[in-house]
Design a protein around this nucleic acid. Structure first.
Lengths: 339, 339
DNA sequence: GCCCGACGCTGAACCGGATAAGTACCGAGA
DNA sequence: TCTCGGTACTTATCCGGTTCAGCGTCGGGC
C-alpha cells in the first residue's frame, strides 16, 4: 500500500504533475473547476505532501530541536522541564511546528545531535538551555549559523537570542522578606555551581545579604536531587549556629529539606523557615505548604518558542526578559525562634 | 554559505556523485584509496547528509512520533509521563532515533498529527498511550498501516503491538496485603473512568474485594489531579463508615489525600492507611513516606521503544508483558484502628 | 594470445514535489 | 483578419542523495 503521490492524483485527474502542484498549493495557473476536482481526488485517496520532497526544494523542516543534557532520572523528577516543554509545545502547536526531542549524555553529544539535525535539514532552529559559564555551545552554535534561542541570562548568550528572567531580583525579594520577618541566619541550598543561573543567584544572594546586614549566609551547592538537598539540609541544621531560614534552588530539594527538618524534630516554620524556587504542586501538597518563588514556566517556554519562530522567519529579534519569579508566601515561613 | 553536497565533494575529488555516494556509505564500488580521499574531503568541508534527500529514496525518517493528548498542566505534574518519555528516549538514543513530540488538544487532533507525520514521511512509527474503551485510534492506526506500539492492555490494542503490565495483579497484591493487615473497609481513588487501565483496575479491585470478603469497597473516579484526589479523599473520610485504607491511582492524588487526612486530624497510618500507585520521589518525601506500587517506568518506556524499533525493522513481534508493579511497603500502611 | 571476470568508476534514472519556461487556445481590439 | 494578451495548462528542470546498468582496464587461467 504505497503512499499516494501527486503523480497518482495527476493520472486520475488526467492532468500533469505541475497542474496538481499548483492546485494543491493554492497557486494561480489552474481553473477553479480543475482545482476542485484535484482537491477532491487528493482528499479521496488520502494524499499527504511528502515533507522530504518539499524540504528538498528548500522548504522548512517545520520542526525545532531540543537536545537535553540531563540524566533521564532527573528529568522525571523535575517538573520544571516538563512544564517548560509543554509551554514550548503549546506555542509550536499553534504554528504546526513539531519538537524534536533527544536526551543526550553530554554536551559533546548534544552538539553532535544539533549539527546533524541542522546539517540534515531536519530542524529549522533550536533551543539551548542550562548554559554553563563560558559554555562552548554558544560559539559553536553561532558558527553553525542556525537560529537559536538561549534560555538564560544575556551575559552568557553571546550573539544568540536570550530569553531570561531576573533571578537576582527574585533572590532579593526573598531575602528581604526573610530579613523583614527577623531572620539573620539565612542559608541557601543551590544547584550545580557551573550553571550560569546558579552563579547569578549566588552573587545576588551574597550581595543582598551583605547589603541588609545578614552576615551569616551560607551557600551549599548540590546537583538538584532530593538526596543531595536532604544531605545539604542535614549538614546545615547540624552546625552549631544553624540557619533559621533556608532557600532552596528547586522544589524537590525544598521538600526533601522539609522532611529532614521534621526528622530532626524541628518545627517548620517556627524553628526553621523554608523557601522553594519554582512552585510545582509538590510545594503546595506538603505540610506546611511551602513559601515558593512562583513563575509561569509554561509561559516562559512559550516565549522562547515564540522568539525562535520569529528568528526562523528571518526577522531580527533582541533579548526577551520574562517576568521574574515572585514570592508566594505560604505556611513554611515565619519569624525566627527567639534566641 | 550553502551546505555542501556530494556534488561538491565529487568535484573536489574529481570523481562522480555515484562514487562519492558509495564511498560515504561504505558500499563496495570504490578503491580504499579513493574512499579515504573522499572521506577526508567530506570531513574537511563539513558535509552532512541531507535527510530529506535520503528520505526521498525510501530511507527511514529515523524518528518516532508521540502525540500526547493531555493538557500541559497535567503533564508537568505527573512524573509518570516524563519518566516514560525519558525511558523511550534512552532506547531511541541508542539507535540514533529522535522523538517527535507534540502535545495535542484532543484525540482528533492527535490522529490528524499522526496522519500528517506518517503521510509526510517524518516518522517511521508511533507510540499510542492512554487508550480509551473502544478507542477509535486503534482502527485508524491499523488503517494507516504505520508501525505502532500501544502502551496498554492487549485486549484493547486490536492488531497493534501492546506493551503492558498486569495492573490486576498489582491491585490484588495491594488488597491482599491490606486485608492481611486487618482492613475490611478499603476505598479506591481511581483515575479517568474512560481509560482502559482504569476499567481493568476497577474490575480487579471489585473482584479481589469480593473474593477475600472486603464487603465495603468504594471506588471514586477522578481526573488524576491533586485537587480531585483531595476532594475525593475528603468525601470518603467524611462518610459515616469511613474507610480504614485508601488506594490511589497515582502518587499526586495519594500525596494530596495524605494532606487531607492530616488536615482532618487523622493519623496516617494508625487511623488511615494509604497506598499510592507509581512510586515517584514524591511518595518518599512526604511524612510518613507512602507505601507504593513501584514499577520501573523508564524501563517500561524503553521496552515500548524497543518493540517499536523491531516493528519498524519489519520484524513481526507479539505483545510484551512488562513486570507488574510491586508493592513497596513504607510508613503509610499499618493495621486499622480497633473499632 | 585470447577470453572472462572482477574491479573501479561513470552516467543516468529516480524518489516526490516546486517552479520556470514554453505552448495551445480563446476572446477582444485594431 | 490578424495580432495581442491572458488563461490554463504541459514540459522540463531542479533539489541531493541512491542505485543500477554499463564500460574500460587489468589480471589470471587455459
Amino acid at each position: 500500500m504505497r503512499r499516494p503521490t501527486i503523480a497518482d492524483i495527476a493520472r486520475q485527474a488526467g492532468v500533469s504533475k505541475g497542474a496538481v502542484s499548483y492546485a494543491l498549493n493554492g497557486q494561480p495557473g489552474v481553473s477553479e473547476a480543475t482545482r476542485a476536482r484535484i482537491l477532491a481526488i487528493a482528499d479521496e485517496i488520502g494524499w499527504q505532501p511528502n515533507s522530504a520532497a518539499r524540504a528538498l526544494n528548500g522548504a522548512r523542516a517545520e520542526a525545532v530541536g531540543l537536545a537535553l543534557c540531563r540524566p533521564a532520572r532527573f528529568l522525571g523528577m523535575e517538573p520544571f522541564f516538563m512544564e517548560l516543554i509543554s509551554g514550548i509545545e503549546s506555542e509550536l502547536a499553534n504554528h504546526s511546528c513539531a519538537l524534536m526531542l533527544q536526551v543526550v549524555r553530554d554536551h559533546e553529544t548534544e552538539m553532535a545531535v544539533y549539527r546533524r539535525w541542522w546539517g540534515e535539514g531536519r530542524v529549522d532552529g533550536a533551543i539551548l538551555i542550562d548554559l554553563h559559564v563560558d559554555d562552548p555551545r554558544v560559539p559553536e552554535m553561532q558558527a553553525l549559523g542556525m537560529p537559536v534561542v538561549v534560555i538564560g541570562h544575556p551575559s552568557s548568550a553571546g550573539s544568540l537570542v536570550p530569553v531570561w528572567s531576573d533571578d537576582g531580583a527574585a533572590i532579593r525579594e526573598t531575602v528581604e522578606y526573610l530579613a523583614a520577618l527577623g531572620h539573620r541566619r539565612v542559608s541557601r541550598v543551590a544547584g550545580l555551581p557551573r550553571l550560569v543561573h546558579t552563579v547569578i543567584r549566588d552573587r545576588a544572594f551574597e550581595d543582598v545579604c551583605a547589603e541588609i546586614g545578614i552576615t551569616e549566609s551560607v551557600t551549599v551547592h548540590t546537583d538538584y536531587t532530593g538526596e543531595e538537598g536532604a544531605r545539604a539540609t542535614r549538614r546545615l541544621l547540624s552546625s552549631s549556629r544553624r540557619p533559621t531560614a533556608i532557600v532552596y534552588d528547586n522544589d524537590i530539594m525544598a521538600v526533601a529539606g522539609l522532611s529532614v527538618a521534621q526528622e530532626m524534630r524541628l518545627n517548620v516554620p517556627s524553628d526553621l523557615s523554608i523557601v522553594a524556587w519554582d512552585d510545582s504542586p509538590l510545594s503546595q501538597v506538603v505540610r506546611p505548604p511551602l513559601t515558593a518563588l512562583t513563575r509561569d514556566i509554561p509561559a516562559y517556554g512559550a516565549h522562547a518558542a515564540q522568539r525562535l519562530l520569529t528568528l526562523i522567519d528571518g526577522t531580527e529579534t533582541g533579548p526577551l526578559e520574562d517576568q521574574a519569579a515572585r514570592l508566594t508566601p505560604r505556611g513554611s515561613t515565619a519569624p525566627p525562634p527567639e534566641s
